[in-house]
Simulated scan of single mutants.
Amino acid sequence: MRLPPLIAVRFFEATARHLSVRQAAHELHVTPGAVSQQVRKLEEFLGCALFERLPRGLALTPAGCDYQAVCGDALARIGHATERLSAPTRRVVLVSCTPGFAVQWLVPRLQQFLQQAPELDVHVSTTHRAVDLPGEGVHFAVRHGLGRYPGLHAEVLLADDLIPVCSPRLVAPRRTARLADITGPQLLHDEHRDDWRLWCQAHRLPQVDCEQGVVFAHSNGAIEAAVAGRGFALVRRGLVARELATRALIGVPTGALSTPLAYHLVYPPETLIDPALRRFRAWIVAQGAEG
């Protein structure tokens, strides 16, 4: 079997993934010159060019594209096998999501999974940033959007049908909230979304000024303020299931707002090579199907 120099393969795969010698060098903790040298060494070994050197960066040649696909899969398999052998008793699953999604949906359900899989640990990293999953060693991310993430597999985890909710104290002594109770100053916003404007347009409420209200850094803040009786939050029902069940929050009896957006479980295709990661993926997708 004729094998290439494996160090050169690793340097090539990082460069191909980033399409940048500088970023590959940063990931590998070496100099850009060392990366360029190893890539040239691999091209000489193979007898073909893997990159086109352009004035403003790199582009893969057709041969480079084919080789990257094979090398990326091979290195991922080696990495997963190494993890299993070097830490046979416990495995870590790293999940990235927003703080609001973690607090309201993921973390309350995790204890069930950990009881089913005591040999696994789940580390939840909260951020609004779209992390580089392969580059940062993250196995899964939950992202809100249309599900278009080049190079990653995405599957719908939760639909994004939104309902307005408030504390019963806000409309006491009545036990129900009405559409007419919603006013501009009482809106509780997530600064990362424009839900109230879309919802009011869909329900033909031009009298509600969606520029008013209080803006929070994430949906969890809006939900907490709603529980405290400070106004109306617009959220997915599944994120406040506990609060609705205990009547810490009540919903306004209107139709939910359907959108093409959803929460997606996102991961590199090679992630599911690992049986432990396949197990976590199956669990979280089943949880999403339940709402």
Results as ranks from 00 to 15, higher is better:
152 L>K: 04
118 P>C: 07
28 L>Q: 13
248 A>E: 14
45 F>I: 05
202 A>G: 08
204 R>V: 07
149 Y>W: 13
241 A>K: 12
11 F>K: 07
149 Y>F: 15
165 V>R: 00
111 Q>E: 13
149 Y>R: 08
168 P>Y: 06
63 A>C: 01
244 L>A: 05
266 V>S: 07
97 C>F: 02
249 L>E: 01
26 H>K: 15
266 V>W: 08
212 Q>D: 08
31 T>D: 13
72 G>R: 13
120 L>C: 10
188 L>G: 03
118 P>M: 10
255 G>C: 05
154 A>S: 15
123 H>K: 13
95 V>R: 03
91 R>A: 13
17 R>G: 14
27 E>K: 10
80 H>C: 08
282 A>Q: 15
192 H>E: 14
185 P>Q: 09
58 L>S: 05
281 R>G: 06
77 R>F: 09
124 V>R: 11
290 E>W: 07
136 E>W: 10
71 C>Y: 11
233 A>S: 06
10 R>W: 00
43 E>W: 02
270 E>D: 14
255 G>V: 11
108 P>R: 15
39 V>G: 02
86 S>D: 12
31 T>Y: 02
125 S>C: 06
127 T>D: 10
73 D>V: 08
217 A>G: 15
205 L>P: 03
91 R>V: 05
174 R>D: 07
8 A>K: 04
89 T>L: 15
154 A>I: 09
51 F>N: 01
66 D>Q: 13
288 G>M: 08
219 S>R: 04
131 V>R: 11
49 A>I: 03
4 P>N: 03
203 H>M: 11
66 D>P: 00
265 L>F: 10
270 E>G: 01
13 E>R: 15
254 T>G: 06
39 V>L: 05
12 F>Q: 03
120 L>V: 12
151 G>Q: 09
289 A>N: 15
231 G>S: 11
30 V>W: 07
233 A>K: 06
106 L>Y: 10
201 Q>C: 09
198 L>G: 00
221 G>W: 02
176 T>D: 10
126 T>H: 05
102 A>S: 15
88 P>L: 12
135 G>C: 04
148 R>G: 10
281 R>P: 02
156 V>W: 00
218 H>Y: 07
197 R>I: 01
109 R>I: 05
34 A>I: 01
234 L>M: 07
151 G>Y: 11
164 P>S: 09
242 R>H: 15
200 C>W: 00
77 R>C: 14
264 H>V: 02
6 L>I: 04
94 L>M: 10
5 P>L: 03
268 P>Y: 09
267 Y>C: 10
284 I>Q: 01
7 I>N: 09
105 W>C: 03
87 A>F: 12
11 F>R: 15
250 I>Q: 00
222 A>C: 04
45 F>N: 02
61 T>A: 01
28 L>D: 07
60 L>D: 06
227 V>R: 14
195 D>G: 14
205 L>G: 03
130 A>Y: 14
9 V>H: 00
193 R>G: 03
53 R>Q: 14
216 F>V: 00
129 R>G: 02
112 Q>D: 14
42 L>V: 08
